[in-house]
């Protein structure tokens, strides 16, 4: 579920890559992803993960010496995962220092890290004028995520509408979603080119807009085509999740517990990928 939700958020991925050492392994010794050292380390932190039938493990935040400093549920939303990552770094700041060579990174990259940490003032201060167009696009994203939608729209309006057509289409679509205006959202996202860099994201959210407009079959078709075209991709994961939670008539009855039995998703995942996809649960308008 994490891969279908919070692990598709650039802020979560950015923090994990820049300020953590992310580790994945399977507790089962028979799995190709098994790791005996990791299992010994983790079961020392959480003995309940040592049996043959275990609860769904959370993400654990730990020192290399085995001190457990925090965790986040396997079913955490993007918002919850981001908060958990930021909290554990804030409370253990000696692990949140800049990497070697930080000053050599472009200021936009450094500003992104501040943003991922929730330090938007520091990010904005770093991007003092004059700004490049890409920096202005990022400023619009900061404003959108902070809920200052008018400001985000204004910054986007000042970008080169040809050079940034696809970015503008996605950003305006997401602004419309934040406003609950799913009709405008659909129109904006449909303007994204078929082959542009953000096409999977645009197609995913186009499906979300169709879903909220009650065009459930069309929404599912958009997600299915996205998965068929892009395969393993962050927005395919999200589309896969959305597809499993819907039918052509609307939301599907949600399973109440994990099972490896029964049909798999379009990407071959087990059917239960979390209780609520926030993009579908959100009430527009």
């Amino acid at each position: 579920m994490l891969r279908s939700g919070p692990f598709t958020d650039e802020r979560v991925v950015g923090l994990l890559n820049e300020l953590f050492i992310p580790v994945y392994f399977d507790l089962s010794p028979k799995s190709p992803a098994s790791d005996a050292d990791a299992k010994a380390f983790v079961t020392n932190l959480k003995p309940e993960l040592g049996g043959s039938r275990v609860p769904t493990p959370p993400v654990l935040f730990a020192t290399a010496d085995g001190a457990l400093l925090g965790e986040a549920s396997n079913y955490a939303s993007e918002r919850e995962m981001l908060a958990a990552l930021r909290d554990v770094l804030r409370q253990n700041s000696k692990y949140a220092g800049p990497s070697d060579g930080e000053e050599k990174r472009p200021r936009l990259a450094r500003a992104r890290t501040h943003h991922y940490l929730g330090k938007d003032k520091a990010a904005i201060a770093l991007l003092s004028e004059p700004r490049t167009a890409h920096e202005n696009l990022f400023m619009a994203q900061i404003a959108r995520r902070a809920g200052d939608l008018d400001k985000a729209e204004k910054i986007l309006g000042e970008l080169d509408s040809n050079a940034f057509a696809d970015d503008i289409a996605v950003e305006l679509g997401l602004i419309a979603f934040a406003r609950g205006d799913v009709k405008t959202m659909r129109v904006r996202l449909a303007a994204h080119s078929e082959e542009g860099a953000r096409a999977p994201e645009a197609r995913y959210f186009l499906g979300v807009s169709l879903f909220h407009l009650g065009q459930h079959a069309e929404a599912r078709l958009a997600w299915k085509e996205l998965i068929g075209k892009y395969g393993e991709h962050p927005f395919s994961y999200r589309a896969d999740w959305a597809y499993t939670q819907t039918t052509d008539d609307g939301p599907a009855a949600a399973p109440t517990s994990f099972t490896t039995q029964g049909p798999k998703s379009l990407l071959g995942r087990h059917g239960y990928m979390g209780r609520k996809n926030p993009d579908l649960a959100r009430r527009p308008g």
């Binding site: 050492i21 392994f25 692990y95």
Partner: peptide
């Protein structure tokens, strides 16, 4: 993690990752 002064973020999976990456 020791050398870089970072925390580990560990995601254990409990139901058997397959060769197709199912998790």
């Amino acid at each position: 993690a020791r050398e870089e002064g970072r925390l580990l973020a560990i995601k254990p999976v409990a139901f058997g990752t397959t060769v197709t990456g199912c998790w």
